[in-house]
Protein backbone atom coordinates (compact mmCIF):
# COMPACT_ATOMS: atom_id res chain seq x y z
CA UNK A 1 0.00 0.00 0.00
CA UNK A 2 2.61 2.53 1.10
CA UNK A 3 6.33 2.19 0.63
CA UNK A 4 8.80 4.78 1.83
CA UNK A 5 12.40 4.24 0.78
CA UNK A 6 15.51 6.21 1.67
CA UNK A 7 13.44 9.27 2.41
CA UNK A 8 15.44 12.33 3.41
CA UNK A 9 14.03 15.68 4.37
CA UNK A 10 16.06 18.77 5.12
CA UNK A 11 15.09 22.30 5.98
CA UNK A 12 16.80 25.51 5.06
CA UNK A 13 16.66 27.64 8.15
CA UNK A 14 17.82 31.12 8.99
CA UNK A 15 20.40 31.42 11.69
CA UNK A 16 21.26 34.84 13.03
CA UNK A 17 21.22 37.53 10.38
CA UNK A 18 21.25 36.30 6.81
CA UNK A 19 23.18 33.07 7.21
CA UNK A 20 21.20 29.97 6.39
CA UNK A 21 21.82 26.47 7.60
CA UNK A 22 20.70 23.06 6.48
CA UNK A 23 18.92 20.90 9.01
CA UNK A 24 18.66 17.27 8.02
CA UNK A 25 15.64 16.15 9.96
CA UNK A 26 15.03 12.86 8.16
CA UNK A 27 17.82 10.65 6.79
CA UNK A 28 17.35 7.32 5.05
CA UNK A 29 13.92 6.65 6.42
CA UNK A 30 12.10 3.47 5.42
CA UNK A 31 8.61 2.26 6.08
CA UNK A 32 6.31 -0.29 4.52
CA UNK A 33 2.59 -0.55 5.15
CA UNK A 34 0.29 -3.23 3.76
CA UNK A 35 -3.47 -3.35 3.67
CA UNK A 36 -5.06 -4.92 6.80
CA UNK A 37 -2.01 -3.91 8.80
CA UNK A 38 -1.39 -1.49 11.68
CA UNK A 39 2.16 -0.22 11.60
CA UNK A 40 3.18 1.76 14.64
CA UNK A 41 5.84 4.42 14.24
CA UNK A 42 7.53 4.86 17.59
CA UNK A 43 10.24 7.31 18.57
CA UNK A 44 11.01 10.29 20.75
CA UNK A 45 10.09 13.83 19.84
CA UNK A 46 12.38 15.02 17.08
CA UNK A 47 12.80 11.53 15.62
CA UNK A 48 10.89 12.48 12.47
CA UNK A 49 7.58 10.71 13.19
CA UNK A 50 5.27 13.60 12.44
CA UNK A 51 7.41 14.83 9.56
CA UNK A 52 6.97 11.47 7.89
CA UNK A 53 3.20 11.94 8.07
CA UNK A 54 3.56 15.44 6.65
CA UNK A 55 5.80 14.15 3.87
CA UNK A 56 3.28 11.46 2.90
CA UNK A 57 0.40 13.92 2.98
CA UNK A 58 2.46 16.51 1.10
CA UNK A 59 2.04 19.22 3.70
CA UNK A 60 5.67 19.95 4.54
CA UNK A 61 6.53 23.68 4.68
CA UNK A 62 8.00 25.12 1.50
CA UNK A 63 11.52 25.48 2.88
CA UNK A 64 11.80 21.67 3.00
CA UNK A 65 13.74 19.64 0.44
CA UNK A 66 12.82 16.01 -0.10
CA UNK A 67 14.67 13.12 -1.68
CA UNK A 68 13.98 9.41 -1.83
CA UNK A 69 10.86 7.53 -2.91
CA UNK A 70 7.35 7.42 -1.57
CA UNK A 71 5.16 4.93 -3.40
CA UNK A 72 1.42 4.69 -2.84
CA UNK A 73 -0.19 1.61 -4.41
CA UNK A 74 2.95 1.11 -6.44
CA UNK A 75 3.07 4.59 -7.96
CA UNK A 76 5.18 7.53 -6.89
CA UNK A 77 3.43 10.10 -4.75
CA UNK A 78 3.98 13.37 -6.56
CA UNK A 79 2.84 16.73 -5.29
CA UNK A 80 -0.19 16.69 -7.58
CA UNK A 81 -1.08 13.14 -6.64
CA UNK A 82 -0.76 13.98 -2.94
CA UNK A 83 -3.08 16.94 -3.37
CA UNK A 84 -5.69 14.81 -5.12
CA UNK A 85 -5.44 11.91 -2.66
CA UNK A 86 -5.30 13.90 0.57
CA UNK A 87 -8.54 13.48 2.52
CA UNK A 88 -9.70 10.89 -0.02
CA UNK A 89 -7.50 7.82 -0.38
CA UNK A 90 -5.19 9.01 2.40
CA UNK A 91 -6.81 10.36 5.57
CA UNK A 92 -5.42 11.80 8.77
CA UNK A 93 -6.63 11.33 12.34
CA UNK A 94 -5.15 14.35 14.07
CA UNK A 95 -3.61 14.53 17.51
CA UNK A 96 -5.91 16.94 19.23
CA UNK A 97 -9.65 17.45 19.34
CA UNK A 98 -8.90 21.12 18.74
CA UNK A 99 -8.74 20.12 15.06
CA UNK A 100 -12.54 20.05 15.10
CA UNK A 101 -14.22 23.27 14.01
CA UNK A 102 -15.63 24.71 17.26
CA UNK A 103 -18.40 26.58 15.42
CA UNK A 104 -19.84 23.70 13.42
CA UNK A 105 -22.03 20.82 14.64
CA UNK A 106 -20.05 17.60 14.59
CA UNK A 107 -22.52 15.91 12.22
CA UNK A 108 -21.85 18.54 9.57
CA UNK A 109 -18.12 18.12 10.01
CA UNK A 110 -18.32 14.40 9.30
CA UNK A 111 -20.69 15.21 6.43
CA UNK A 112 -18.15 17.63 4.96
CA UNK A 113 -15.34 15.13 5.36
CA UNK A 114 -17.42 12.63 3.38
CA UNK A 115 -18.07 15.17 0.63
CA UNK A 116 -14.40 16.15 0.45
CA UNK A 117 -13.54 12.47 0.20
CA UNK A 118 -15.66 12.24 -2.95
CA UNK A 119 -18.58 10.22 -1.62
CA UNK A 120 -21.51 10.53 -4.07
CA UNK A 121 -23.95 13.23 -2.91
CA UNK A 122 -26.84 10.79 -2.77
CA UNK A 123 -24.93 8.42 -0.50
CA UNK A 124 -23.48 10.92 1.95
CA UNK A 125 -26.43 10.95 4.34
CA UNK A 126 -26.54 7.21 4.62
CA UNK A 127 -22.78 6.94 5.00
CA UNK A 128 -22.66 9.52 7.77
CA UNK A 129 -25.49 7.74 9.61
CA UNK A 130 -23.73 4.44 9.18
CA UNK A 131 -20.42 5.85 10.47
CA UNK A 132 -22.14 7.44 13.45
CA UNK A 133 -23.76 4.20 14.50
CA UNK A 134 -20.55 2.31 13.94
CA UNK A 135 -18.73 4.51 16.43
CA UNK A 136 -21.64 4.38 18.86
CA UNK A 137 -22.47 8.03 18.47
CA UNK A 138 -26.18 8.71 18.97
CA UNK A 139 -27.78 10.52 16.04
CA UNK A 140 -28.64 13.41 18.40
CA UNK A 141 -24.89 14.03 18.71
CA UNK A 142 -24.89 15.26 15.11
CA UNK A 143 -26.51 18.53 16.09
CA UNK A 144 -24.08 19.13 18.95
CA UNK A 145 -21.06 21.40 18.82
CA UNK A 146 -17.61 20.07 19.78
CA UNK A 147 -17.69 21.76 23.20
CA UNK A 148 -20.93 19.93 24.01
CA UNK A 149 -19.60 16.42 23.49
CA UNK A 150 -17.40 14.59 25.98
CA UNK A 151 -13.70 14.02 25.35
CA UNK A 152 -14.28 10.40 24.48
CA UNK A 153 -17.00 11.25 21.99
CA UNK A 154 -14.85 13.94 20.39
CA UNK A 155 -12.17 11.28 19.84
CA UNK A 156 -14.73 9.08 18.11
CA UNK A 157 -15.80 12.00 15.94
CA UNK A 158 -12.17 12.48 14.87
CA UNK A 159 -11.94 8.81 13.91
CA UNK A 160 -15.30 9.07 12.16
CA UNK A 161 -14.16 12.00 9.98
CA UNK A 162 -11.24 9.89 8.78
CA UNK A 163 -13.24 6.66 8.38
CA UNK A 164 -16.32 8.07 6.65
CA UNK A 165 -14.58 8.55 3.31
CA UNK A 166 -13.32 4.99 3.08
CA UNK A 167 -9.71 5.96 2.67
CA UNK A 168 -7.25 3.18 1.93
CA UNK A 169 -4.48 4.55 4.11
CA UNK A 170 -5.13 6.13 7.48
CA UNK A 171 -2.47 8.02 9.35
CA UNK A 172 -3.14 8.56 13.05
CA UNK A 173 -0.75 11.19 14.43
CA UNK A 174 -0.48 10.76 18.21
CA UNK A 175 -4.19 9.97 18.58
CA UNK A 176 -3.95 9.20 22.30
CA UNK A 177 -1.89 11.93 24.00
CA UNK A 178 -2.33 11.84 27.77
CA UNK A 179 -5.66 10.03 27.61
CA UNK A 180 -7.22 7.79 30.21
CA UNK A 181 -6.24 4.13 29.58
CA UNK A 182 -9.85 3.16 28.70
CA UNK A 183 -10.02 5.90 26.09
CA UNK A 184 -6.61 4.89 24.72
CA UNK A 185 -7.79 1.31 24.38
CA UNK A 186 -10.99 2.41 22.65
CA UNK A 187 -9.20 4.63 20.12
CA UNK A 188 -6.66 1.91 19.39
CA UNK A 189 -9.46 -0.61 18.88
CA UNK A 190 -10.97 1.64 16.28
CA UNK A 191 -7.65 1.64 14.43
CA UNK A 192 -7.56 -2.14 14.60
CA UNK A 193 -11.08 -2.34 13.15
CA UNK A 194 -10.12 -0.03 10.31
CA UNK A 195 -7.22 -2.33 9.46
CA UNK A 196 -9.48 -5.38 9.63
CA UNK A 197 -11.73 -3.65 7.13
CA UNK A 198 -8.85 -3.73 4.67
CA UNK A 199 -7.16 -0.39 5.21
CA UNK A 200 -3.53 0.29 5.94
CA UNK A 201 -3.05 2.14 9.23
CA UNK A 202 -0.02 4.10 10.42
CA UNK A 203 -0.09 4.82 14.13
CA UNK A 204 2.38 7.53 15.06
CA UNK A 205 3.08 7.63 18.78
CA UNK A 206 5.74 8.16 21.44
CA UNK A 207 3.97 5.62 23.61
CA UNK A 208 5.51 2.21 22.97
CA UNK A 209 3.09 0.53 25.34
CA UNK A 210 0.06 1.83 23.47
CA UNK A 211 1.63 0.86 20.15
CA UNK A 212 2.16 -2.73 21.26
CA UNK A 213 -1.52 -3.07 22.20
CA UNK A 214 -2.62 -2.84 18.61
CA UNK A 215 0.24 -2.88 16.09
CA UNK A 216 1.34 -5.70 13.83
CA UNK A 217 4.70 -4.10 13.23
CA UNK A 218 6.58 -1.42 15.11
CA UNK A 219 8.93 0.88 13.21
CA UNK A 220 11.40 2.46 15.60
CA UNK A 221 12.54 5.92 14.52
CA UNK A 222 15.58 7.66 15.85
CA UNK A 223 17.06 11.01 14.78
CA UNK A 224 15.13 10.83 11.51
CA UNK A 225 15.99 7.31 10.47
CA UNK A 226 14.37 3.87 10.79
CA UNK A 227 16.49 1.76 13.13
CA UNK A 228 14.30 -1.32 13.09
CA UNK A 229 10.90 -2.50 11.88
CA UNK A 230 10.12 -5.15 14.47
CA UNK A 231 7.20 -7.52 14.60
CA UNK A 232 5.06 -6.69 17.64
CA UNK A 233 5.67 -10.07 19.30
CA UNK A 234 9.44 -9.52 19.13
CA UNK A 235 9.19 -7.17 22.11
CA UNK A 236 7.71 -9.69 24.56
CA UNK A 237 9.67 -12.59 23.10
CA UNK A 238 13.02 -10.87 23.54
CA UNK A 239 13.62 -11.10 19.82
CA UNK A 240 14.60 -7.44 19.27
CA UNK A 241 17.49 -6.69 16.96
CA UNK A 242 18.62 -3.11 17.49
CA UNK A 243 20.28 -1.98 20.74
CA UNK A 244 18.07 1.13 20.82
CA UNK A 245 14.86 -0.89 20.46
CA UNK A 246 16.06 -3.16 23.24
CA UNK A 247 16.85 -0.13 25.38
CA UNK A 248 13.43 1.37 24.68
CA UNK A 249 11.74 -1.80 25.83
CA UNK A 250 13.94 -2.06 28.92
CA UNK A 251 13.21 1.53 29.91
CA UNK A 252 9.44 1.02 30.32
CA UNK A 253 8.37 1.52 33.94
CA UNK A 254 6.85 -1.97 34.04
CA UNK A 255 10.17 -3.44 32.88
CA UNK A 256 13.52 -2.34 34.23
CA UNK A 257 13.07 1.45 33.95
CA UNK A 258 16.75 1.81 33.01
CA UNK A 259 17.52 4.46 30.38
CA UNK A 260 20.40 4.85 27.96
CA UNK A 261 22.12 8.12 28.86
CA UNK A 262 22.62 10.91 26.34
CA UNK A 263 20.31 12.41 23.77
CA UNK A 264 19.46 12.23 20.09
CA UNK A 265 22.04 14.00 17.91
CA UNK A 266 21.04 17.46 16.76
CA UNK A 267 19.91 17.68 13.11
CA UNK A 268 22.61 20.24 12.27
CA UNK A 269 25.38 18.04 13.68
CA UNK A 270 24.62 14.44 12.76
CA UNK A 271 27.44 11.92 13.24
CA UNK A 272 29.04 10.49 10.07
CA UNK A 273 28.45 6.91 11.09
CA UNK A 274 25.49 5.21 12.75
CA UNK A 275 23.16 7.82 14.21
CA UNK A 276 22.94 5.90 17.49
CA UNK A 277 26.71 5.34 17.75
CA UNK A 278 27.37 7.96 20.43
CA UNK A 279 24.99 6.22 22.87
CA UNK A 280 25.35 2.61 21.81
CA UNK A 281 26.84 0.02 24.20
CA UNK A 282 27.96 -2.11 21.25
CA UNK A 283 29.76 0.64 19.33
CA UNK A 284 32.92 -0.29 17.39
CA UNK A 285 35.13 1.67 14.99
CA UNK A 286 33.16 0.40 12.02
CA UNK A 287 30.02 2.06 13.43
CA UNK A 288 31.67 5.48 13.42
CA UNK A 289 32.67 5.64 9.78
CA UNK A 290 29.65 4.49 7.79
CA UNK A 291 25.89 4.65 8.12
CA UNK A 292 24.65 1.06 8.40
CA UNK A 293 22.19 0.06 5.71
CA UNK A 294 18.89 -1.61 6.38
CA UNK A 295 19.23 -5.40 6.27
CA UNK A 296 17.05 -8.35 7.14
CA UNK A 297 17.90 -10.08 10.40
CA UNK A 298 15.61 -12.82 11.73
CA UNK A 299 12.95 -11.78 9.26
CA UNK A 300 12.82 -8.08 9.97
CA UNK A 301 14.75 -5.05 8.71
CA UNK A 302 17.29 -3.50 11.08
CA UNK A 303 19.94 -0.83 10.66
CA UNK A 304 22.80 -2.19 12.79
CA UNK A 305 25.95 -4.03 11.79
CA UNK A 306 26.02 -5.89 15.11
CA UNK A 307 22.56 -7.41 14.90
CA UNK A 308 22.89 -11.18 14.60
CA UNK A 309 20.77 -13.67 12.76
Amino acid sequence: MLTVQNLSVSFTQYDTGLTQKQLTVITDLDLHVNAREVVAVVGSSGSGKSLLAHAVLGILPHNAQISGTILFKGEPLTRQRQASLRGKAIALIPQSISYLDPLMPVGRQVHQAARRAGVATTDIRQRVDHTFSRYELASTVKQQYPFQVSGGMARRVLVATAAVGQADLIIADEPTPGLHPDLVAETLNHLRQLASAGKGVILITHDLEAALQVADKVAVFYAGTTLEIAIAEDFVNGNLRHPYTQALWRSLPQNEFIPVPGAQPNPDALPDGCLFSDRCPLVTDACLTERPSLRLVRGAPVRCIHAEG
Binding site: Y14, T16, G17, L18, T19, Q20
Partner: peptide, 20 residues
Protein backbone atom coordinates in the same frame (compact mmCIF):
# COMPACT_ATOMS: atom_id res chain seq x y z
CA UNK B 1 30.04 36.60 18.99
CA UNK B 2 28.30 37.66 15.80
CA UNK B 3 28.32 41.32 16.83
CA UNK B 4 32.11 41.43 16.83
CA UNK B 5 32.18 40.98 13.10
CA UNK B 6 29.31 42.82 11.47
CA UNK B 7 30.37 41.83 7.94
CA UNK B 8 29.65 38.18 8.65
CA UNK B 9 25.99 39.08 9.10
CA UNK B 10 25.75 40.32 5.55
CA UNK B 11 27.78 37.55 3.98
CA UNK B 12 24.76 35.54 2.93
CA UNK B 13 23.21 38.44 1.03
CA UNK B 14 21.68 37.34 -2.24
CA UNK B 15 18.31 37.79 -3.84
CA UNK B 16 17.52 34.11 -3.54
CA UNK B 17 17.52 34.58 0.20
CA UNK B 18 14.05 35.52 1.39
CA UNK B 19 15.36 37.40 4.38
CA UNK B 20 17.66 39.42 2.11
Amino acid sequence: PAIANPRSRLQGFSLNNRRS
